[in-house]
Nucleic acid binder design. Structure first.
Lengths: 150, 150
DNA sequence: TCCTTTCGTTGGTGAGACCAATGTTGGTGA
DNA sequence: TCACCAACATTGGTCTCACCAACGAAAGGA
């Protein structure tokens, strides 16, 4: 039951956009599988990580830092708050805002997820050496930075 | 109105799966924009290219070579046939199959698309040097090959 | 002859990335 | 002080992809 090869013509294989999508697909599949049953989605991890590293943040701030749409942040915060992984409270200083704060339980879960996702990344990057992995993440990061948020 | 930076924490930025998705997003946006109004989608190009390089192919063959699901190939072939870019005919030797053939008009269109997509790739990979671009496509290709389909 | 596989097709699901509109609140300039 | 514009959270969509299950027809092997 090995993976079937994808024998696309060079014209297509050389296309960065095609390669990016084709490489992202298995990565997403593996992440989704690893997170299956935990009630956590890929985007949720980003939110928890941002909260852990930047401390309490408004939802708009979360949107900016994760690249998620503001409306999608709403749903994600709903879900994570219901799971007790973070808290949402109105900001006293600026009453337009909600301040989102990581709970202790949220932090614990984040650390577990760190492990899980590190393992998944290993799977995704399996065919590459350590040096090549660093090369790849560096190149991708530069593309991401260059295009920013559309 | 330049692109806003995405200031994700290192834990997230280092994630291959996150980077792949974040890099694929602008690529898809640019491709979609370039193809806008032409009635051609991203996946259609792959089909045309496969037909040009491998000659007449069954729909299942197209599915294997492009990585598209068989059911999605059906819709794409419907669309492209309606546009006169390819023809679908039952295979006399194997009556389960449809043989899909590129028309002259389809080939012309393909050559135009080659130009368009080459320009888009230039945009996507703008921040990278020629060497780096080759590095990136090579690394991505190895990931794609390693995970194959399914 | 059965049994399995392949093929095209239909119909549907779920996630993800978006976009528009609304009511509220802040901040600014006249 | 008032008017205006910008930012915020939220609702409620849309659209594209990737994918899956199931079907009847046809082929091929046991």
């Amino acid at each position: 039951m090995e993976a079937a090869p994808v024998d696309a013509p060079p014209r297509v294989r050389g296309l960065a956009s095609w390669l990016l999508n084709r490489a992202a697909a298995p990565a997403n599949r593996l992440v989704a599988r690893a997170l299956e049953g935990s009630g956590i989605r890929r985007s949720h991890y980003s939110l928890l990580a941002v909260l852990d590293e930047h401390g309490p943040t408004s939802q708009a701030g979360l949107s900016r830092r994760t690249g998620l749409d503001r409306s999608d942040v709403v749903a994600a915060v709903n879900h994570l708050a219901a799971a007790g992984l973070l808290q949402r409270a109105p900001d006293a200083d600026d009453r337009r805002r909600n301040v989102v704060t990581l709970t202790a339980r949220g932090r614990d879960r984040l650390l577990e997820l760190d492990e899980v996702l590190r393992a998944v990344q290993d799977e995704v990057l399996a065919p590459l050496s350590g040096t090549e992995r660093r090369q790849l993440t560096d190149l991708l990061a530069r593309i991401v930075d260059h295009h920013g948020a559309g």
